[in-house]
Every structure is written in structure tokens, then in C-alpha cells.
Design a protein around this nucleic acid. Structure first.
Lengths: 245, 245
DNA sequence: CAGTGACCGGATCAATGATCCAGTGCTCGA
DNA sequence: TCGAGCACTGGATCATTGATCCGGTCACTG
């Protein structure tokens, strides 16, 4: 009647839920990714090691390899996961331009909220969150009347623009918080001042001289792209058969 | 009168130039960078290690650290070095648009010629080659009559666009050559076919479905940006004081 | 000829990604 | 009730890599 050697019947309710007294959920792929994102946000990309990640999860580093094949998996999953926060506009709207703007703006916001993501943009993004948003972008453009070759160019151009923007902005601002003294921007600023004879225009009007508003610059450039897309879509709609203009 | 123990007077001309019979130049920062670029071009970014680089140079790995402080130095120097190949258009021209197009196109060509560079774009680019070309870009735009806030937006937008383009294209084509079988693009293609019900538009019109021409797409998007810049410059020129429109 | 300083590299360290393999406890069928 | 199997864990361990220590080599100088 009595249980095994180590406990009596009903013990289960007295012992902590097996999980070695740790209150954390049983360690799943999702939990690992979630913690990885937290770690990346707090300490940056170069501080993410399997050991440190495991430590934060309260497990051994080797355990992670049961749930994931490689460290790159963590990065790929983390990268896709953050895009879940990009809201997909309701596709009811008539205004494709507003929808695209909302999507791209949200996209950019996520990239900037997680500066480490910029460095990862060089890897194939095939996760469900990314694909769903790409799908929406394409669908919206198609509905707006954008046709090839402008369709590919539009999706491609918009994506490139966001990616480039995030990458550039992350480059010049990311470290400022962590190393206020040796901030990249600060060092660059002094460099320009020193070499202002060699780079006169850059020193006078350069991004670091003007200390421009990233958001405004981004919006202006996005507007240019959308204007172009819109114009070509309209032209294609008016003269479906004749060569444009 | 006789020389040292190991040689007699005039020996210098008989012995190989000290350099332990190796014909290579005496190993300078420049030579290291040059070889690093060759290594990166041939084998990719992840194969660049200090040991391997040293081996190719015929020296010990530690020697490199006399010429450079860290491995990142190698990368930063290599990244800047490749931009020397971007020709700076003569600034005589009246046609700012052609000049900018030439610069941006050359910029892109270099990035694509050295696919490993795309992954490095996340680091501050403050080398002389990059700065000289940025200087030219700004100067050309200023001469074209572009004023703030469009000036910053234009330089920023153009840069972002090239960077993003190169990054994206490198992502989807780079590995195709090295691993023809497991090419990223191929895997993605199959993924789309499998999930074509979930991503219908993407499967039908997506970049991998259309297999679009990167160059054409790039040119179209660049045209949109330039159109926007041109229009705003013209507007600013016509009505310098009144608010635009 | 001793001394100096530029330059080189073997030995070595610490960090890291990844694997091997021996567990540990739960579940389920007999 | 029990034992086989499975999901899951982690200590020990390896190879690789960036970086440093420190002792060497060689030309040149006074």
C-alpha cells in the first residue's frame, strides 16, 4: 500500500511539481525563445550564449540542445517571434496606402525596439510571422492595382527601405545607451569635426551634424516610395495595354 | 674585419632579403587586409579566422595582433577597402540625377561583388573610402537644390535603399553557389509551394515565384526615390519662402 | 659590441558551440 | 504491480577560436 521508497501515497501534492522546486514552466521551445529575446533586449547580441541563456532558464546548457538543434535556431526563432508584434491592418480598408504605411511603420518600430534584430537581418526570414506580413504586403499591393514589374519592385523596395533604415539607425544609436562615453555617434561626431576640411559637406549637413529626426526622414522617404508606386499603379490602370506614357 | 659569425661582408646581397626566404612583402596592415578580402571572397565570412588568415599570409596567427588590435579591425578595414572600387563620378556634371544613380549603382555592385559585406553593414562605417563617397553624395544633393528636411531624408533614404537591397539579395542568392543543393532560395520555394494555401499571394507573386530580375527591381525603386527627391527639390526652388504647396 | 626597437610566433588561456552518455522520473501496457 | 520505454535533463568533455604572454630574431646605431 505504501508508495515507493521515497514517498507515501498523496505525496505528489506535497512535493513541488517535480520540476526541482523551480516554478518555471517545463521548458519548451517557446520558453527558450522568449527568454532569449529578453536576454537579447537586456544585454545585446554578443552576450547571448547558450550557457548564459540556460542559466537564465535555470537549466544546464546542454538541455537546450534537446529543444533546438543549434544556436542559430534560437536566433531565427527569436527574430521571427518579435514580428508577431507588428499589427496586420484589417484588410477591409479602401486605403491601401494607409495600410502599407501602417505595416511598414510597425515593422520598423519592432526592429528599433529590438536593436539586436538589425544585425540578424542578413539571414533568411521564413518564419510564420514574417511570411504572414509579407503576404499581407503583397496582397495589399495587388489589390491596389500594382502589377509587374512594379509589384516586385514595390515589395522589394519597401522591404529594403525598412531593413536599411533599421540597420542604419541601430548602428548609430544602439550603443549610445550602453556605452554613453564611447558612443559610436559621439566618436563619429568628433571625427567629422577633426576632418571637417576633408568632408566639408558631411560636416555641415551630415546626419550627425544635423542630428536629424530619424522618424521624419523615414516618413519622407517612405512617402517618396509610395508616391512612385501609386503613380505607376495609376498609369497601369489607365492604359492597361499601351506602353506606359 | 670579418663580419659576424654567420656571414661575411657583402652577405646581404647573397642572402634572401631576410624575410625567411618567403617572397611575400613584409606583412603590413594593408597586406593583411588585402588577403582578408581574398579569403572572404573565396570562402565566406564564417571561414575567416585569425589562424586561417595568418596561414594564408605565411605567418603565425599571433603576428597579426602586432598590426591590428582585434579581428573586428580586420573586418572594418576590409569593409572600407572594397569601397575604393566605387567610382566617384566627376562632379563637373550638370546632371545630378545621373551622378547619384552612378554612385548608388556602383555602391550596390561592390556590395554584391563581396557578399560577405552585407552581413557587416551593421557596423559603423567611418573609413575614408566610405566617407569620401558619402561626402560626394551629400555634395551632389546640395548642389541639386535639395534642402532640409529633404536633404537628410534623401541621403538617408538612398543609403538605406542600397544597404537593404544588397542585404536582401545577398541573403537569397549568396549561398546558392556554395551549396547548390540546399540553396536557401530553393528551400524557400518549396516551402511556399507547400504552404501555398496559407500564403496564396506570396506563392503566386512572391519574389521567389516570379524569380524577378533584381537589377530591374532595384532600378525601379531607385527611380521612385529620385523622382521624389527631384520633385521636392523643385518645389523648394520655386517657392523658397512659402510653405510647400 | 652592447643596446634598442621593430617585428615575429610558440605556448597558452578563457569562452563558446556542440556532442556523448549516463541518468531520472513519469506513463502506459501487460 | 511492475518493468519497459520515453521525454527530458545535465555533467564531463571536445574542438575551435579570439586574444595575450613572453621570449626570440634581426637590422641598425652609437
Amino acid at each position: 500500500m505504501a508508495g515507493k521508497g521515497s514517498g507515501s501515497a498523496g505525496d505528489v501534492w506535497l512535493r513541488p511539481p517535480t520540476r526541482t522546486a523551480r516554478e518555471a514552466p517545463p521548458l519548451s521551445r517557446d520558453r527558450i525563445v522568449e527568454e532569449a529575446i529578453a536576454l537579447l533586449d537586456e544585454e545585446g547580441a554578443d552576450r547571448l550564449t547558450m550557457r548564459r541563456l540556460a542559466e537564465r532558464l535555470g537549466t544546464g546548457s546542454t538541455t537546450l540542445y534537446w529543444h533546438l538543434k543549434t544556436k542559430d535556431d534560437v536566433l531565427d526563432l527569436a527574430l521571427d517571434a518579435i514580428f508577431a508584434a507588428v499589427e496586420i491592418p484589417g484588410n477591409d480598408g479602401r486605403d491601401w496606402r494607409a495600410a502599407v504605411t501602417a505595416l511598414i511603420t510597425g515593422w520598423r518600430a519592432v526592429l528599433l525596439a529590438h536593436p539586436w534584430s538589425a544585425a540578424l537581418l542578413g539571414r533568411p526570414m521564413l518564419g510564420p510571422n514574417v511570411l504572414a506580413r509579407s503576404e499581407f504586403l503583397y496582397a495589399t499591393l495587388v489589390k491596389a492595382g500594382v502589377v509587374e514589374p512594379h509589384l516586385t519592385a514595390a515589395a522589394y523596395g519597401l522591404s529594403n527601405y525598412v531593413i536599411g533604415s533599421a540597420l542604419m539607425q541601430a548602428t548609430w544609436t544602439a550603443r549610445a545607451e550602453q556605452h554613453p562615453g564611447s558612443a559610436t555617434g559621439q566618436a563619429a561626431r568628433e571625427r567629422f569635426r577633426a576632418d571637417s576640411d576633408r568632408y566639408p559637406v558631411l560636416a555641415a549637413h551630415g546626419p550627425l551634424a544635423v542630428d536629424g529626426d530619424w522618424d521624419t526622414s523615414f516618413a519622407i522617404g517612405l512617402g517618396w516610395l509610395l508616391d512612385g508606386i501609386q503613380a505607376d499603379a495609376a498609369a497601369a490602370g489607365e492604359a492597361p495595354e499601351s506602353r506606359s506614357e
